[in-house]
Design a protein around this nucleic acid. Structure first.
Ligand SMILES: [Mn+2]
Ligand SMILES: [Mn+2]
Ligand SMILES: [Zn+2]
Ligand SMILES: [Zn+2]
Lengths: 140, 140
DNA sequence: ATAGCAGTTGATAATAATTATTATTTAGGA
DNA sequence: TCCTAAATAATAATTATTATCAACTGCTAT
């Protein structure tokens, strides 16, 4: 938490109560949250904070690498404290995004893409389906 | 073209002038087009056609497999006549979506995902960067 | 050919997610 | 404490798409 705030001021950004609370909310969560979910939790702590401030800061925090933005194929973007490069199994039942410990941008595939002459900037790999909990729920 | 129209009526959908024109526009294009781009071209042929009709039919045609929808990470969805399962190299310069002849959902990665107990419904792999043309353009 | 009606359309309102605008406030350095 | 660039709150605007609904039309059965 303190480290995150330091990263902000080290880059010349101010440490505002709004930013503290947004980071607190994200620290307290163990899953990805949408901007709206974050704004709701933030307002439980400090009702005066504007949703625009939440969006503004989520953008900033993602830009400087404090957060990672998970831009799902559909629905709103989701955020969490940056935990490094990852891909996800996204459940159509409960919406959970489960980290997948593997990345397709390597080995043969990486080689093929490089050899095509395309200059890679970023990549995105997303699997949708049903997590084990939701599979069990369907069978009831 | 005739085959596509047959597929429509075989499923109980009517062959309307609007649908003919939308399919014509897509047949005439060699790249992905957004709904708006399609609507523009459609209106050049028949100005009275509503943009809502274009959206409505793009959804229908994608649903029954006549078109494939390319839901890019950002920006509007893009459509083309269905040419089978594919992933793309999307150029940040010119917007072109170049087909990548390979799919990560196979071999080791597929096995890892299956073994996780997650029931896969679909997957999405998208590489963004710069195509060779746009790389050359940058160097000028 | 004609009538009937489910399917379709055009016009427009609504929605969802996010960004832009702008007057006001504030964090943090001098 | 003062100053000012940065940040905020409130709200309008934007983008892409879907929903609504009255009017229309392709097809099928007469
Ligand atoms: Mn990766
Ligand atoms: Mn694939
Ligand atoms: Zn689930
Ligand atoms: Zn390009």
């Amino acid at each position: 938490m303190t480290g995150l705030l330091n990263k902000l001021s080290a880059r010349g950004y101010k440490i505002t109560p709004q930013r503290r609370i947004i980071l607190q909310v994200l620290s307290d969560s163990d899953k990805h949250l949408s901007a709206e979910e974050i704004a709701d939790k933030v307002k439980q702590i400090e009702p005066g904070i504007s949703v625009a401030t939440v969006y503004r800061n989520l953008n900033l925090l993602a830009e400087i690498g404090i957060l990672s933005r998970l831009n799902l194929h559909e629905g709103p973007a989701r955020y969490e404290l940056n935990q490094g490069h990852n891909h996800h199994l996204v459940c159509l039942g409960c919406g959970n995004a489960i980290k997948l410990g593997v990345c397709p941008m390597q080995g043969e595939i990486k080689k093929i893409i490089e050899e095509s002459g395309f200059e890679v900037d970023s990549h995105h790999f997303e699997i949708t389906g049903y997590c084990q909990k939701c599979q069990a729920r369907q069978k009831l």
